[in-house]
Design a protein around this nucleic acid. Sequence first.
DNA 1: GAATTATTGAACCGTGCGGTTCATACTTCG
DNA 2: CGAAGTATGAACCGCACGGTTCAATAATTC
Lengths: 209, 209
Amino acid sequence: MSTATTPTDKRQAILEAAFRTFARDGYGQSCVREIAEEAEVAKPTIYNRLGDKETLFREAMKAAVEHTAERSLNALEPLRTPGGDMRSALEETGLLLLRSHACQESRALRRLLSAEGARFPELLEEVQRAGAQRVQDALADRFARLALAKRLDTTDVERAGEQFLALLTGPMELRSALGTRAVPDEELQAVAEAAVDTFLLAYAPRDPG
Amino acid sequence: MSTATTPTDKRQAILEAAFRTFARDGYGQSCVREIAEEAEVAKPTIYNRLGDKETLFREAMKAAVEHTAERSLNALEPLRTPGGDMRSALEETGLLLLRSHACQESRALRRLLSAEGARFPELLEEVQRAGAQRVQDALADRFARLALAKRLDTTDVERAGEQFLALLTGPMELRSALGTRAVPDEELQAVAEAAVDTFLLAYAPRDPG
DNA sequence: GAATTATTGAACCGTGCGGTTCATACTTCG
DNA sequence: CGAAGTATGAACCGCACGGTTCAATAATTC
């Protein structure tokens, strides 16, 4: 049984509050006192459980990338079905990927990582590997199966995956004002559709003859 | 006549030093004393000429976007010639765009803008308009001319420009570790080539029949 | 219910920051 | 040369921060 404030995982509450605060104010402008308030926890508790501000930041980032990466990986499921036409599967995956890419947490994660990555190189490496790199690899896996089944025409599935993601997320940079403002879902759909159009023109198998 | 330290444009030296410092340490971690040292200038001089730290940041960012945007706009020149084949013109423009996108100043500008943009909304707006948006518009202009001359097959030149840029810069996010590490020029060439390949498969006019 | 552990708030410390003051020195130009 | 304006460095102010201490209190465990 747990009381109102769950007992053990107060650590998680701290991490979530830390991420919210860092995301809102940036690392340099965030102060531990505010994080403590946000987590409804005393300041010494933070230092007891997580050491100094830097490790607090690291742990919060690592926790955040787990959520977002999982959501992106789930977005690749429609590509697993060999049945159904290619276009609709790609469009569904594309839209799901874009929703994941455009969500609050994901945008904040990239913003913070890009801002502080130079000062936390190992963290940058780890988060990239657990996030974007993992998604791109998984997408290349899907494309490999599809190429083998002659549903896609390519010999370089890494390149195909990289470009599919580029067509999806590249346009978001400007549209979301570098991740600082939300983008309506209809716009995500339009971007996904345009990306799939272009991708298929380049990668759909041509009719023989 | 000017002495070793040019007299009037000490202001510019301050702005450049400020941008270097902000780029290296981030806004929150930069202190005015260090900027003053970097600019070889006394601290009160900074406050005399540019007011507080926030306006110093704003001015430094605005100054930086001018350089980078101009370089990107110059990259579009090869597309102005109607002669020569499409592929080589696109490849040259693509490589020049990538070099501009991947250069130190440009990466730092995007990093800082994405990090602090939420707290400086008007600055974000202004820099985006003077930078990425302007380049994208100019590219759409070039594509419009090329479409009119039947060198490209599209009715939506904004979309074509957006996707061309996406194919170029999208892959750089992961490859440059969110702009924190430099990318060798051969890799830029490979990305540009791949982007042009895919772009042409989607946007080159098909032979009639 | 006693003993152990974790949590709390409040006060505290040292430090480095943004920003200002001021007297001195330097430059510029008449 | 002399006057006006500007740059300089050093000291200074107030403040908020990261991090710690401590006594009091709540929660857990047996």
